[in-house]
């Protein structure tokens, strides 16, 4: 309990700090932070699966579904309330995951990874063929309101930033609890030895099913937030390279702590934007080198900086 309280107060402090930064920082910085918070939500979902030993190369499916749900709700149905469309994004992602999960929860390892990727590429293919939705060009999201109040385009960025901070706070607190709950640890048990888990009277498939849906809902929220922030959606969101980016951030963060994901997502965006700036021709090299360094020196991700320094006493 003491542990949760301390972590929660730490999350709350980070939240307040982020709000303050949002009010002071320039627009490009708050946009970058919004995007990294949104992507962190997706990656937390991925980390939930990683803790159960599963790598999804298809979180782009739900990221894209979330984005398109927000876009279609606003553009074609005229539902513009920010909270409502985010909720729709999460529900749509959850429903699709509940259907696909029935099949996916039976697969492990490379088969799971390939199947998830296949499903996201199917969505990509459908969207490319949908001329009404702008095919590969996608479409813009014009107006967003909050409980009937419509912020102008100059304020919208900041409002979406606050919304992303709030979403991040809620997800961080809940997921931190989840990681330390019995069902949270069940994932690690499944990764270690699935047969033993079954002997304990728990169904691994059912646990993976629930984790898959949870991950999808988080990815849907992340995609929805990204769509609100950038004002545009296109099928690229479901392309496998987008999913690969999430896996990259998950490797950067490791699975040890929720906070690590936010830090990793932010670092990823910062590294990438400065790589674009410093080496317009070779920015991919900088990203690749970062990933290599992480794999060599921090194979368990960023959070192991703390655990290594603490580990003097042999704590693993």
């Amino acid at each position: 309990m003491e542990y949760f309280r301390r972590t929660n107060s730490f999350f709350a402090a980070a939240f307040v700090l982020l709000l303050a930064v949002g009010l002071m920082a320039p627009n490009w910085f708050s946009y970058l932070t919004t995007i990294s918070l949104a992507k962190a939500l997706v990656v937390i979902g991925l980390v939930i699966l990683l803790r159960a030993g599963l790598v999804s190369f298809g979180q782009g499916l739900y990221y894209c579904l979330g984005g398109y749900s927000v876009g279609i709700a606003g553009h074609y149905l005229q539902w513009t309330d920010g909270f409502l469309v985010l909720l729709i994004a999460m529900v749509v992602s959850g429903i699709v995951a509940a259907i696909l999960g029935l099949l996916l929860c039976r697969y492990r390892e490379i088969f799971f990874a390939m199947l998830t990727m296949a499903f996201s590429m199917i969505l990509y293919g459908i969207l490319v063929k949908s001329v009404g939705l702008g095919s590969t060009d996608g479409f813009n999201i014009h107006s967003v309101s909050f409980f009937g109040w419509e912020p102008g385009t100059d304020k919208l960025g900041l409002i979406v930033y606050f919304l992303a901070c709030l979403a991040a706070l809620i997800v961080a607190v809940l997921m931190h609890r989840y990681f330390h709950s019995p069902v949270g640890f069940a994932g690690e048990a499944i990764r270690e030895n699935e047969i033993r888990v079954e002997y304990l009277g728990v169904s691994p498939n059912r646990i993976i099913f629930s984790k898959y849906i949870l991950a999808a809902v988080l990815a849907g929220a992340g995609g929805g937030l990204t769509a609100l922030a950038s004002g545009h959606v296109d099928p690229e969101m479901a392309y496998w390279t987008t999913s690969g980016e999430f896996v990259f951030v998950a490797l950067l963060s490791g699975t040890a702590h929720v906070a690590a994901v936010f830090i990793a997502a932010f670092l990823f965006e910062i590294i990438r934007t400065y790589a674009f700036d410093l080496a317009p021709y070779n920015w991919q090299m900088i990203l690749g080198a970062t990933l290599l360094l992480i794999i060599f020196f921090l194979p368990k991700g960023l959070w192991s900086i703390f655990t290594i320094r603490r580990a003097g006493g042999g704590v693993k």
């Binding site: 946009y31 990438r272 317009p280 021709y281």
Partner: peptide
């Protein structure tokens, strides 16, 4: 600036 990375990325680079 490289145009790679899709719409979301380019909106960020544009702001930069």
């Amino acid at each position: 600036v490289d145009e790679a990375g899709g719409g979301t990325k380019q909106v960020g680079e544009y702001r930069n």
